[in-house]
């Protein structure tokens, strides 16, 4: 059986800098995988390559057994992989529902003109990530950081994604907001969503992942259960900065 997401021998060079160094890993369908590593380890670069924002120097990226390396970002999203950003990027002059609407839209000019917005579905998605009825008409400027993260996840869900890449979802959140997002991710895991999660907040990450992959200098240094990886000698020294 093929994995939901399979990265094989991925290499990315920026000039002389090797940002991703022969990295391989699998994310099984329905699995939730944590991607950890110290600052500058290349986690976000891996996300950028999976989404096609950067093209890898070599290696392959397969989604449900299909090579996606030559697809554009919108094409990859249509095939079922989507990401959120560390700094949320909402549409500032649109309310919550309209932000989600953009994610739900067909990528076809004619259908954009003829098809009506699916208010029902927009509302369902908004409520499912934890917005209340009164939030629906709010614009991003009126929302707190935790709500902006939820909005970003809602728009990502709206694209019909099956594999969700979360980049530092807990950064800058209050304890209460972290708890909310945690519940949300748990619920989505139960509903069958596949996750690849980058987070510095290991405590928040622990309950959310089936498996953890640690990378440093762009290559994999450990893979296994949360405790195995955290107790790994190479991982510990990479975080502490020791040789």
């Amino acid at each position: 059986m093929s994995a939901a997401l399979r990265i094989t021998n991925l290499v990315k060079r920026f000039g002389g800098l090797v940002a991703t160094d022969n990295l391989s890993f699998d994310v099984e369908d329905g699995q939730s995988v944590g991607l950890i590593g110290p600052n500058g380890a290349g986690k976000t670069t891996v996300f950028a390559q999976i989404m096609g924002e950067h093209r890898q120097t070599s290696g392959s990226i397969e989604l449900y057994g299909r090579e996606i390396s030559s697809d554009s970002t919108p094409e990859r999203i249509r095939r079922g992989v989507s990401r959120t950003y560390q700094v949320p990027r909402p549409f500032t002059d649109m309310n919550v529902l309209e932000n989600i609407r953009v994610g739900l839209m067909p990528n076809n000019i004619w259908q954009m003109i003829t098809a009506k917005p699916r208010y029902q579905q927009e509302t369902e998605i908004a409520l499912s990530v934890g917005f209340t009825e009164t939030d629906l008409q709010k614009t991003p400027g009126e929302l707190a950081m935790g709500d902006l993260r939820k909005l970003e996840m809602a728009r990502t869900i709206a694209t019909g994604t099956k594999v969700m890449l979360l980049d530092e979802v807990f950064a800058g959140l209050t304890v209460a907001e972290i708890a909310q997002i945690t519940v949300l991710i748990q619920q989505m895991r139960q509903d069958g969503m596949t996750f690849l999660i980058v987070s510095h907040d290991l405590k928040a990450l622990e309950p959310l992942v089936d498996k953890v992959i640690a990378i440093n200098y762009g290559s994999k240094i450990a893979e296994g259960s949360f405790n195995e990886v955290l107790n790994d000698e190479a991982v510990r020294s990479s975080y502490l900065g020791a040789a």
Binding site: D93, V102, R155
Partner: peptide, 28 residues
């Protein structure tokens, strides 16, 4: 007033997020 208008406004607000929503910015 159609969804197309919404999508074009979205391009003006944040092109990357439009692309990240699975829409072709070039086409829009």
């Amino acid at each position: 007033r159609t969804q197309l208008g919404t999508a074009l406004s979205a391009v003006g607000m944040n092109e990357e997020s439009v692309r990240g929503s699975g829409l072709s910015v070039t086409k829009l």
